[in-house]
Design a protein around this nucleic acid. Structure first.
Length: 814
DNA sequence: CAGTGAGCGAGCTTCCGCTTGACTT
C-alpha cells in the first residue's frame, strides 16, 4: 500500500530524492518525455486547427506501464518534472497518459536538490499550468512543421536523406558564412616595432624592458627608415601612469560554458564532456549537467565559503549570486557544481572524469572568491625628432583573489600571450629619465583571418543567439556532421614567410622567418552539400534562416505562456506564411539542379561538363542525359569543391579509371573508390598511397605496390586452429589481433608472442573483452553474425551484406 | 581501429527537446 508517488525526469534525481522523502513516498522517473507527435502525417491535423496526435513511442511503453501501475496504487501522485516549458509539458502528458485523477494529483517544483527545497515544494503544490503546456505544444509543433516540410523539399531538390530544421540549419549557416568571410579575407601586412631598452634596476645592474611602438608601418621602407632614424635618437620617459584594476571571477558552469572550457582546457569534444558529466552526475558527484542557470544553492555557497576560508583565508571569500545573461534561459536547475564542495578531487572514476570534476570544482569555488587586484603600469617613451612613442606595459597582481584557483581561458588566448601571463613587472623608472636601447626589431605581422568555429565556440554562438537548448547542443553538432553538411578540418595550415629587421647598435640586419597560418584542424568547415543546402534555404526560406527567427518566435511562446496569445493561432499565423513558400519552392522547374555549376565544354568530345550534388555527393558530369551516349560521372576528389573546381580539373577526373598495362597476364587498372585511388589487378584491390599521383603512377610502381600488398597479406596470418576454423590470429595495421566469427578482438600488449597463444587463451581474451562494459556490443554483434552466416551460408552475397551492416554498427560515432 | 573498392530514375529518408540504455523466441 503506497501513499505517495513522486515522478521526476531523471532516475539519478529520483534516487537522491527518495533518500530525502523516506518510506511514505515512492520516487520514480519518467526518463524525459513519455509521448511525442506521431510520425505519420507529421502527427498534426492542420486543417482542423493544428490538432496534435501524440503517441507513446515503443521504447517508452514499459516505463509508462510501470508508472501507470504505481499511480493506480498511490493515494497522491506528485508530478515533479522540471519547472520549465518542457517540464510542464511532461507533467501534463503524464497526467493524460496515466489518466490521473485531478483530485489526487499535485504539481510541485524545485530548483535545487536539497532536503529543504523538496520539503518546501511538497508543502506548496499547485496545478498544471495549461498556458505553459500550450507554449510547449506550439514549440513542438512548429519544429515538426518546419522540419517535416523543409526536409522533403531538400530530398527532391538536392539529395535524399537530407534534413533541415530551425536549429541545425542556422548552425550550418553560421559555419558557411564564416568560411566565406575567410575566403574573402585578404591578409594585410604591417610592421610592428619592439624595442628592448636597458634600465638600471637600482642595484647597479641593467635589466631589459620591452616596449612597443604605438604605430605600425605599412611598408618595409617606412619601418627601415624609422629604425635608421633611431640610431641618431635619444629616448626619454615622458610619462608613467599607474592604474589599479580589478578582475572578477566568472559565473559557475552552465552546459555551454562547461563545454567551452572543457574544450579549451582539457581538449574534449562537447559530446565527450557531456558523457563524462553524465557519469559524474549519476555517481552523485555533481549536480545536473544540462542547465542554463548560473544559480548556486545557499548550501553550495556556504560550503564554498568554509572551504575557501579554511584553505586560503577569510580575505579570499566573497560570495555572490550570478544572474544569467543568455537569451531564453529557463533556469529550471542549478548551475553545474560539485554536490559536496569539500571534495576537491575524486578518488574514484577515470582520469578524464576526475579532471573534469576538478575543473568544475575550481570554477565553482572561484565564483565565490574575492576579485583579483591588479596594478597596470604604462610607461610612454618618446623618440627625439619623431612624433611617435614607445609604450611599455607592466601588470602586477597585488592580490591574487580567485586567480589562486581558476583562470578562465578564451578562444583568442594564443594571440595575446602577454595579457594573461602572470605578473609582468616594469623596472623602477622616473619620468624624464633617458634610456638606451639594446636592440630594436621590426617584425612583419599579418592581420588574422576570422577563426573557424570549433564545436565549443559554435555552441557559444548558438547560445548567444538563443538557439538550441543545453540538451541539444551536442546532438546538433553531431547531426550536422552526420548529414555531411559540415566536417572537422584536418589541415595543419599553410606556411608563409615574413620579413624581420633587427637593429643592434647601428647594425641593421634583414632576415626571413616562416610562420603557419590558416589551420583548420578540428575546426568545423562546410562541405559542398552544406554550402548548396544553405544557399538554397537562404534563397527560398530566409525567414527560417534568420538569426533572430528563434528569438522572435520565443517571444511569442512567452506570450502564450503568459496567457496573452492562443497557441494554435500563433501556429496558424506562422504556417500561413510558411507553407505557401514550400509549395512555391517545390513548383519551381529548372533545367539545372540546385547548386549545379556548368563549367563549359570538353574540347575533345564537345560534351557539356558540369558539377553538382549527386545522389552520393559532389559529382562531375560529362554529357547531358538526352544525348545518345549516356553521360559519364566522376566523384569529386577530396579537397575539391563544386564552388571552385575548374574545367581542367574536372576533365582530369574522367581520365580514371585507366589501364596502365599487364602483369602476370592480367590487366592493371587504376581507379578511384570510396577510400581513394586504388589499383585493380586479378580480382584484387590495392590502395595507392598518398605519395603517388594516380594519374601518372607507372606500371612498375603498381607492380611494386601489388607485391608489397601480397607480402603483407602473407604475413597477415599468424595462427589458426583446426578445432575452431572461425578463429584466427592475424596481423593488422595496429599489430596482432584475434578475428573470431567476423568480429575482431585486441591482444593485450603484455602478451609478447601472440603466435604461442592457445585456443583456450584466445577464447579467454574474447570473453574478457565481451564482459567489459564497452565490449557488450561486440558480443551481440558476433551473435547476430554467426547466426546470419549459419542460416545463409550458401548465399555468400547475403552473408557479406550481413557482415557489412554489423561493421557499420560497431563503428563508434567518433 | 584491424580492410573496405558502385553507382547517379525504386525502395527510405526528416524536426527539437526531454531522458538513458543497448533484443536472447
Amino acid at each position: 500500500m503506497q501513499k505517495n508517488l513522486v515522478i521526476v525526469e531523471s532516475p539519478a534525481k529520483a534516487k537522491t530524492i527518495q533518500k530525502f522523502l523516506g518510506d511514505d513516498f515512492q520516487v520514480m522517473s519518467s526518463y524525459g518525455h513519455i509521448r511525442d507527435l506521431n510520425k505519420k502525417n507529421a502527427g498534426i491535423d492542420i486543417e482542423n486547427g493544428f490538432i496534435p496526435h501524440y503517441e507513446v513511442p515503443t521504447d517508452k511503453t514499459t516505463i509508462v506501464k510501470e508508472l501507470k501501475a504505481a499511480a493506480k496504487k498511490s493515494e497522491i501522485v506528485w508530478l515533479a518534472s522540471d519547472e520549465d516549458r518542457e517540464g510542464e509539458a511532461i507533467s501534463w502528458h503524464l497526467s493524460e497518459v496515466l489518466q490521473l485523477d485531478p483530485e489526487k494529483t499535485r504539481r510541485i517544483v524545485f530548483h535545487e536538490i536539497t532536503k529543504t527545497a523538496i520539503l518546501d515544494a511538497v508543502a506548496q503544490p499547485r496545478t498544471i499550468d495549461t498556458n505553459l503546456v500550450n507554449a510547449q505544444q506550439a514549440r513542438r509543433l512548429l519544429d515538426r512543421l518546419v522540419g517535416f516540410e523543409l526536409s522533403p523539399v531538400l530530398w527532391k531538390k538536392v539529395k535524399p536523406q537530407l534534413s533541415a530544421g530551425r536549429v541545425q540549419s542556422v548552425a550550418v549557416r553560421l559555419i558557411v558564412e564564416r568560411e566565406r568571410e575567410i575566403n574573402n579575407f585578404i591578409a594585410e601586412a604591417s610592421f610592428r616595432i619592439v624595442a628592448v631598452f636597458l634600465v638600471p634596476d637600482g642595484q647597479g645592474r641593467l635589466v631589459e624592458m620591452k616596449a612597443e611602438l604605438s604605430k605600425r608601418f605599412v611598408t618595409a621602407q617606412e619601418a627601415q627608415q624609422f629604425l635608421e632614424h633611431c640610431t641618431q635618437s635619444t629616448f626619454r620617459i615622458d610619462e608613467i601612469k599607474k592604474t589599479p584594476t580589478k578582475k572578477s571571477p566568472a559565473a559557475p558552469f552552465t552546459t555551454s560554458t562547461l563545454q567551452q572550457e572543457a574544450s579549451r582546457k582539457l581538449g574534449l569534444p562537447v559530446a565527450r564532456t557531456m558523457s563524462l558529466a553524465q557519469k559524474l552526475y549519476e555517481s552523485g558527484q555533481i549536480t545536473y549537467m544540462r542547465t542554463d542557470s548560473v544559480n548556486l544553492s545557499n548550501l553550495a555557497i556556504n560550503t564554498s565559503k568554509s572551504v575557501i576560508t579554511e584553505k586560503m583565508g577569510a580575505e579570499y571569500v566573497q560570495t555572490r549570486q550570478f544572474t544569467t545573461k543568455s537569451k531564453g534561459a529557463q533556469e529550471a536547475h542549478e548551475a553545474i557544481r560539485p554536490t559536496d564542495m569539500s571534495v576537491a578531487t575524486l578518488s574514484t572514476g577515470t582520469p578524464q572524469e576526475r579532471r573534469l570534476y576538478e575543473l568544475i570544482w575550481k570554477r565553482t569555488l572561484a565564483s565565490q572568491m574575492a576579485p583579483a587586484q591588479l596594478e597596470k603600469t604604462t610607461a610612454t617613451i618618446s623618440v627625439s625628432g619623431q612624433e611617435l612613442a614607445f609604450v611599455a606595459v607592466g601588470e602586477v597582481i597585488t592580490f591574487d583573489g580567485f586567480l589562486k584557483v581558476y583562470r578562465e581561458s578564451f578562444d583568442d588566448d594564443s594571440e595575446d600571450p602577454a595579457g594573461n601571463e602572470s605578473s609582468n613587472l616594469l623596472p623602477p623608472m622616473q619620468e624624464g629619465q633617458f634610456l638606451e636601447y639594446k636592440k630594436m626589431i621590426a617584425t612583419e605581422r599579418f592581420s588574422q583571418q576570422p577563426p573557424r568555429y570549433s564545436e565549443a565556440s559554435l555552441v557559444r554562438k548558438l547560445e548567444e543567439l538563443g538557439i538550441g537548448r543545453p540538451s541539444t547542443y551536442a546532438p546538433t553538432i553531431s547531426t550536422i556532421q552526420k548529414r555531411a553538411y559540415v566536417e572537422r578540418g584536418e589541415d595543419e595550415g599553410m606556411e608563409r614567410s615574413f620579413h624581420v629587421m633587427s637593429l643592434v647598435g647601428d647594425q641593421l640586419v634583414h632576415s626571413k622567418e616562416v610562420e603557419k597560418y590558416g589551420s583548420n584542424k578540428n575546426r568545423l568547415i562546410p562541405t559542398d552539400i552544406g554550402v548548396v543546402v544553405n544557399d538554397f534555404l537562404m534563397q527560398h526560406f530566409p525567414n527560417i534562416m534568420d538569426y533572430n527567427f528563434t528569438a522572435n518566435i520565443e517571444r511569442e511562446f512567452d506570450e502564450i505562456a503568459e496567457g496573452d496569445k492562443i497557441w494554435n493561432v500563433v501556429l496558424k499565423d506562422f504556417y500561413e506564411h510558411f507553407h505557401p513558400n514550400v509549395d512555391k519552392t517545390l513548383a519551381i522547374k529548372s533545367e539545372q539542379r540546385v547548386g549545379e555549376r556548368v563549367l563549359g565544354i570538353d574540347p575533345k568530345t564537345g560534351r557539356n561538363i558540369s558539377v553538382k550534388i549527386g545522389r552520393y555527393g559532389p559529382v562531375a558530369q560529362l554529357g547531358l542525359p538526352d544525348e545518345e551516349e549516356k553521360p559519364m560521372f566522376a566523384q569529386l576528389r577530396k579537397g575539391q569543391s563544386i564552388q571552385d573546381i575548374t574545367l581542367e580539373e574536372a576533365l582530369e577526373l574522367f581520365k580514371l579509371p585507366r589501364e596502365v598495362g599487364e602483369y602476370e597476364g592480367y590487366g592493371v587498372k587504376i581507379g578511384v573508390g570510396r577510400f581513394g585511388p586504388y589499383i585493380y589487378h586479378h580480382a584484387k584491390y590495392v590502395s595507392i598511397p598518398k605519395e603517388f599521383d594516380p594519374l601518372d603512377v607507372t606500371l612498375d610502381e603498381c607492380i611494386d605496390l601489388i607485391e608489397k600488398k601480397r607480402k603483407a597479406d602473407s604475413e597477415k596470418h599468424i595462427k589458426s586452429f583446426d578445432e575452431e576454423p572461425e578463429l584466427q590470429i592475424l596481423n593488422g595495421r595496429w599489430g596482432p589481433y584475434i578475428a573470431y566469427q567476423k568480429v575482431n578482438y585486441k591482444i593485450p600488449k603484455t602478451i609478447e608472442s601472440p603466435a604461442e597463444l592457445t585456443l583456450e587463451q584466445c577464447m579467454e581474451l574474447i570473453k574478457k573483452e565481451e564482459d567489459s562494459p564497452s565490449g557488450k556490443r561486440k558480443a551481440t554483434a558476433r551473435a547476430t553474425v554467426s547466426k546470419k552466416t549459419a542460416t545463409k551460408k550458401k548465399k555468400t552475397t547475403a552473408a557479406k551484406a550481413g557482415t557489412k551492416k554489423v561493421v557499420k554498427k560497431t563503428t563508434p560515432k567518433a
